[in-house]
């Protein structure tokens, strides 16, 4: 399978998992937010899956990011859209090593942090992404393939997602409600974990 088809399949897998988990994400978001996180992510990934799929894998992901951003709106539209655009921009030409992917993941994470002004522990999607990316880097440095590094980093992402349950929101609308957000897992951290897991499954299946 060529790389741009693989990238497109990853986006389709992300859409499928978000549609499946939409009620759960809505429930998590209604505790300290307005309950529409799942709907926003679904709107974004529907548009991302319908975007132009010509060019390299990086270009496919960047165009999906632009479409996501415009369709989803809100903070998550801006943030996830920016993440995908930067990730796509970081994946130049043929992607063969996990080191290349790690470098793009780091760039995308930096762009996300700059736009959202959040950090680790603020109860956001970064609490999944940062540990995931760090674990991915460790695997890549040890010579793992892309699917192996991705699969090996998922546990760290899951642990990060689960840690948001004990956090008090520091950014976004839920930050106003502070303690009300305690005890509930962050919807953004949750949806990002589901997407990473779904992408991992595609990579395992298609790049054995």
């Amino acid at each position: 399978m060529d790389q741009s088809t693989l990238a497109a399949q990853c986006i389709d897998a992300a859409l499928a998992i978000i549609l499946e988990k939409e009620p759960e994400l809505a429930q998590l978001d209604s505790v300290a937010g307005d309950g529409d996180h799942g709907a926003g992510m679904a709107r974004g990934f529907r548009a991302a899956a319908a975007a132009d799929r010509t060019g390299t894998a990086g270009q496919v992901i960047a165009k999906a990011g632009m479409a996501f951003s415009d369709a989803a709106g809100g903070a998550s539209g801006a943030l996830v859209g920016m993440y995908l655009m930067t990730l796509g921009g970081g994946l130049q030409g043929d992607v063969t090593t996990a080191i290349q992917v790690h470098s793009a993941l780091v760039k995308a994470q930096d762009a996300l942090m700059k736009l959202g002004k959040a950090k680790l522990g603020d109860k956001t999607m970064l609490d999944t992404l940062i540990p995931f990316t760090e674990a991915f880097g460790a695997q890549a440095g040890a010579g793992a393939t892309i699917p192996a590094a991705w699969g090996g980093a998922l546990d760290a992402g899951r642990a990060g997602m689960e840690s948001t349950k004990d956090m008090v929101a520091a950014r976004g609308r839920s930050a106003v409600l502070k303690e009300r957000s305690l005890g509930t897992q962050d919807p953004g951290a949750t949806s990002v974990y589901y997407v990473l897991r779904a992408v991992g499954e595609v990579l395992q299946r298609e790049c054995p």
């Binding site: 529409d36 926003g40 989803a72 709106g73 801006a78």
Partner: peptide
């Protein structure tokens, strides 16, 4: 104009 309770996108 954004969706219900959702900021309009940067593009819009």
């Amino acid at each position: 104009i954004g969706d219900i309770f959702t900021s309009p996108s940067g593009e819009q």
